[in-house]
Structures are given as structure tokens and as C-alpha cells.
Design a protein around this nucleic acid. Sequence first.
DNA 1: GTCTATATTGCGATAGAC
DNA 2: GTCTATCGCAATATAGAC
Lengths: 200, 200
Amino acid sequence: MSKDTPAKLIDAAVILFAKKGFSTVTIREVAEASSANSALISYHFGGKEGLYRAVLEQQFAEVGRALLSVSTQNERPLDRIATFAWAIINLHQTNPYLLRLVNAELSTPTPSFKEVVKLYIGRNFEFICQAIREGIEVGEIKKEIQPEYAALALAGIINFYFLAKPLEQQFVTMNSDSDSEYGKQAIQIYLNGIRRNGSE
Amino acid sequence: MSKDTPAKLIDAAVILFAKKGFSTVTIREVAEASSANSALISYHFGGKEGLYRAVLEQQFAEVGRALLSVSTQNERPLDRIATFAWAIINLHQTNPYLLRLVNAELSTPTPSFKEVVKLYIGRNFEFICQAIREGIEVGEIKKEIQPEYAALALAGIINFYFLAKPLEQQFVTMNSDSDSEYGKQAIQIYLNGIRRNGSE
DNA sequence: GTCTATATTGCGATAGAC
DNA sequence: GTCTATCGCAATATAGAC
């Protein structure tokens, strides 16, 4: 059995919205890419805006699933941070459109987006902050580190690479395992950066 | 004497393009914001696209200037990297529209963007790579570090914070010197992360 | 150089047959 | 549910007076 029309439309729209941004994409484009009729977008989703909302919901459902496994583990703080970072890297690899969609909303978040994001991103942010606080308490992490800023630094070092990939490819030649190679380097730099060294 | 029309148009367009992205902004909006006539956009810049190109050029001229002062200094590698990072932070503080303009183009660069940007960003990227290579040679930086990936990590740790600021403010309360506070933490983490420790 | 008025295009949405 | 045809609108660009 082949996919039904709403699913076909969403699948095509995810790619187009991620690549070109909401306003640049036309419903005729989406229709052609999904071999459906443009009128069906209004019929099934109430319009272009409704299709976009459906796309966001489908994509963010993935985030919740991916990170559920991490937060239930119980390693030591530094290891927990590394596990989390790899989960994010894996998420971006398996779902390359997610970050682009988020990015489009970064500068001027829409109200509906804010709600969705605050839930998913806020949860992750708190998870990392907590791991850092614990790390400081048990002496694994330098006590000068401020958990909130250090959490943002981790977000930057992991996410920016995937975000700017189209630009980066103009300067660095990348192959199939550049992502995990970057992950190794980035996580190593970050953990060494916050780790409390014995001498101190 | 008041500013001439092209300058007025560019100044208004910088803000609008940064806030809303190229396709969402209408020439009528720009005209109203700059108290000029919309027809003058075609007259002076040959159209909306030409105005956008002029905006990018004006903004990126700033980047060139900011980096110039850094690259002429001649510190040791790690200090040079720190000086560079602070210059970028300062650039974002004094010019909050720049990164938003870049961000809008991150996923799908337009032709005008590619030409202007490849020059400026490529130059910065090479500058950092070179500093890292030197740092490895003189034993200041771990030899396992790969210069290209480490340069991308620095870009991420510095730029992402400013990029995602509208989102971050929902989780962290920020004040006027949060930027430099973040800068201290981020640069400290990064430099400690790549620095060769004495024992090794 | 600057204005008004308009030409032209392409969008999202819908009416109505099937 | 899906199609064709079309409406209504808003956008860029331009022609032509001043």
C-alpha cells in the first residue's frame, strides 16, 4: 500500500521548508514534489500555514524520542554529558532537516514554535546544567565553570557544525564520516575544557 | 546635511532583512521605514535583489575591518586565538544584524551571498587554522587536535550563543554584560580544551 | 532624483465537477 | 478525496510627469 496524501505532502514539505524557508516555498512546489494536487493542501491542512505546523510537529516528535533514552541512563557527570552530545549528533545525522527548521525560527520565533521549543529544548538545557552542577560537586568539573553558560557552549559546539555545514563545505572537504570525526574532536575539546585537572 | 537616499535605504534594509529575511521583506516596507519612495529602490539598486546585495556588502565590510586589527598582531598562538575570539564577540555586540543576515543564508546561500561571504569567512577560517597549526608545532596545543575541525568548534562556541540568543533568553536570564561573561567562559573552555597539558 | 500611477506576475485559496 | 479552473490579492518593477 502506498502512503496517503497527507503523509506524502508532509514528507515533501519537510524537505522544502527546511531547504528554502517557509515563505519561499510555494504550495505548487510542494504539490509537484509530492505528486499531489495543490488544492489538497488546503483540504487536508487548512492551508500552507497548517501544513507547516504539521511539519514541525512531526519533526519534534523525533526529538523527544531520541533523547528519552539518554536521560534515563545514570553515568557519572562527564560521561553523561558525552552520551548526551553523541545522542544529539546522531539525531542530526539521522534527521538532517530538523536543525534547519529550528534555525528558520531562531531569529524571530513564532508563538506556536515557542511553546513547542520551550518544552523540548528547555528539557535538554536543564539536563545538561544539572550534569554540570553535579560534576562540580563531585570534583570532576572545574568550580569556576558556570553551568548555564557552559551548557550554552556545549550547544554551540555541537549544533553550529551541523547548522553551518553548507557553508563549511566550501572551506573543508567533508566525507561520510566527517560528522563523527568532528564529534570526537568537539567533545574531546569540550570535556577537556571543563574537566578539573588534578594539579589544581 | 542629511543622508542621501541610497544610504537611507540600506540602513533601513539592514534591519528589516536581518529581522525578517529576504523574501518576507517588501520593498514598500523598506521604503516606508526609510521615508523614501519604493520606486527609488529599483532606480538606485536595480531592484530588491540589488538592495540586498548592497546590504551584505556594507555589513561584511565591517567584518574585514574587525579582523584586520587582529591579524596584524603577533602574539603566541593561543593568545592570538583568544584575541580573535574577543574580536568576533565585540563585532557581534557592536553589530547585532550581521549574524542574522548570515544565518538567513546558512541553509540555502543565494548567489549574491556566496560571492560576498566566501571571501570574508574563508579568510577568518584560514586565520584560525593557521594559528592552531602553529600552536601544535610549538607544543602549545595538543597534537591530536585537527586544525580544521577545531576551527569549526571555535566558530560554534562563539557564534551559536549570539545566534540563538532570542531562544536562550527563555532559559537563562541575561543582562547587559552576559555577552562578555559568556565570552570568558567559552574562551576559557575552548583554550583549556585544546591546550597541551604539561604532563603529556 | 523623486514622485504617482499602473503594468505584470505569481501567490494562496476556493468553487464546483467528478 | 481529488481534480480543473479561476478569483482576489499583494508583490516587484516600470513608464512617465515633474
